[in-house]
């Protein structure tokens, strides 16, 4: 089963423009009342969508929250559909891309 609290927050960030605006302006205050663990809260405050996804946030929500999500992966993955480098920071930490070809050569993971 997935983490309800994470996904409920992701869902409301997607569907509630007021919450989204408050989150963009001051993330820690916007999610102060959310029932999150310290690790989850830190991931949201950092805007680390990869971490949020690994903690149980559903991919389609992570990818499609306006102005917060990964914009369909286009910013993070590049035009060749390449892979995120392991440990690369989330959106606010900016992007790092490695192509499938380099990945096959064992440069990642």
């Amino acid at each position: 089963m997935s983490r309800y609290a994470i996904n409920s927050l992701l869902y409301h960030l997607k569907k509630d423009p007021n919450l989204r605006a408050r989150f963009i302006k001051q993330p820690s205050a916007a999610i102060a009342d959310a029932d999150l663990t310290d690790e989850e809260r830190a991931a949201f405050i950092a805007g680390d969508m990869r971490k949020i996804n690994e903690l149980g946030g559903y991919l389609h929500l992570v990818m499609s929250i306006p102005k917060i999500g990964t914009h369909g992966g286009t910013e993070l993955l590049g035009h060749d559909g390449g892979q995120l480098i392991e440990g690369a920071p989330g959106r606010r930490g900016r992007k790092a891309v490695r192509s499938p070809r380099s990945r096959r050569k064992g440069h990642t993971r």
């Binding site: 996804n53 992966g73 993070l76 559909g81 390449g82 892979q83 392991e86 499938p100």
Partner: peptide, 12 residues
């Protein structure tokens, strides 16, 4: 597409 629904595997 999107194996394991992991962002890190988008593109596989």
């Amino acid at each position: 597409h999107f194996p394991e629904l992991l962002l890190g595997r988008v593109g596989e």
